[in-house]
Design a protein around this nucleic acid. Structure first.
Lengths: 156, 156
DNA sequence: ATTGAAAATGAAATTCGATTTCATTTGGCT
DNA sequence: AGCCAAATGAAATCGAATTTCATTTTCAAT
C-alpha cells in the first residue's frame, strides 16, 4: 500500500496506515463516524479530520466511493469486483448488495441514447427487510375494517 | 387541490397555493432555493421555511419525491406517470430522465430474492452530457506526445 | 356572522454533517 | 543532517436542513 500511494504522490504515515487497514477490515458502507470510532479504539489521538481526509483519499485513489442514501449521512463503499446495487432498509438501515450485471447493458444504451457518457451507475432499492417486516407485523397490526363498513363503501 | 388536501387533513392558504402552483409550473427537480426564488418573485413576503415545509408536504401527499445526487442539495422531483431513472451531468448539473420500465422486473425479483419489500427504486447514471464533452474537447485538449517520445518509450 | 381549536406562517435560531483553516509535525528525498 | 511538501489535530467555519416560537389564518361548528 505504501508503494501504491507513493506512485500517486502520497506519503504513508502511521495514522494513514491504521485508517486504511481499519477501513478494509470493517464491513463495507461505513460512515466517517463509524470508522472514526473504530480507529479511535486503537489510537485515541487520531483526529476526526484525519479520518475524514483519509476516507476521501481512499476514494480519490479509487479504492472506495461515496454512497448517498438520502438519510443525510455519507457512507464509503469499498470498490470491489463488479458493479452492484444497494438494497437499503429504511427502518434498520441495513444495506445489502445485489448483482446488477444483467441490467448494465440496458443502462449503458439508455445513456448513449441521450448522448451521455456514463461515469458511474447507481441503483438503489429502498424498502423494508424481512426482519423489520416481521417485527412490524407483531407490533402494529393495523386494525381491520369491519366487513360491513368495507361493503358499505363499495356502493354508496 | 384544496379539496385534495382537505381529504388529507391539510388546509389551503394563499402561500401554499402559490408554492404548489409554482412547483408544478417549474421544470422538475427543483431545490428549495430555486423554488424559493421563483415564489419570491411573486410574493416577497413568503418565508423560506414555508417554502421548505410545503415542498415536504408535496412529498408527503405523494406528489413529489426527494432526489439526492450526492452534491449536497436535495431536489424535489414531481411524481409523474411512471418510474424513471436520472441521467445527471456532473459538470453542468443537467438532469434528464429516461425510461427504466424494462429493468423493473429484474430489480423487483432481485429485491424479492433478498426478502426485501421494495418501496422505491432509484437508478442514477452520472456522467457527462454531450454539450459538456464537446466543450471540454475544445478547451483542454491534452497535449499530444511527440511521436518520437512515444516510440522511444516503447523500447527502452 | 362569530368563534375556537388546529394548522400554517415568518423570522430567527439551532442542528449537524461536511469541509477548511492554521499552526505544527512528519515523511521521504538529496 | 536538512529541506520541503505533505500530513496531522484541534478548532473554526460552512451550509443545507430542520426546529422553535410567537403570531396569524383557516375552517368547521356554532
Amino acid at each position: 500500500m505504501r508503494e501504491f500511494l507513493k506512485t500517486k504522490g502520497f506519503k504513508m504515515t502511521p495514522q494513514r496506515e491504521l485508517i486504511f487497514r481499519s477501513f478494509f477490515e470493517l464491513d463495507r458502507h461505513v460512515s466517517v463516524d463509524e470508522l472514526y470510532d473504530k480507529v479511535r479504539q486503537q489510537d485515541n489521538t487520531i483526529g476526526y479530520s484525519t479520518v475524514w481526509r483519509n476516507l476521501k483519499l481512499i476514494c480519490k485513489v479509487g479504492l472506495a466511493e461515496e454512497v448517498n442514501l438520502g438519510d443525510g449521512v455519507t457512507r464509503y463503499d469499498r470498490v470491489t469486483q463488479g458493479p452492484h446495487g444497494h438494497l437499503y432498509c429504511l427502518q434498520c438501515k441495513e444495506l445489502v448488495e445485489f448483482d446488477v450485471e444483467p441490467v448494465l447493458e440496458f443502462l449503458t444504451v439508455a445513456a448513449d441514447e441521450h448522448k451521455f457518457a456514463p461515469d458511474g451507475i447507481k441503483i438503489e432499492i429502498q424498502g423494508h427487510c424481512a426482519k423489520c417486516r416481521k417485527a412490524n407485523k407483531k407490533k402494529a397490526r393495523p386494525v381491520d375494517q369491519p366487513a360491513a363498513k368495507r361493503l358499505a363503501e363499495k356502493r354508496p
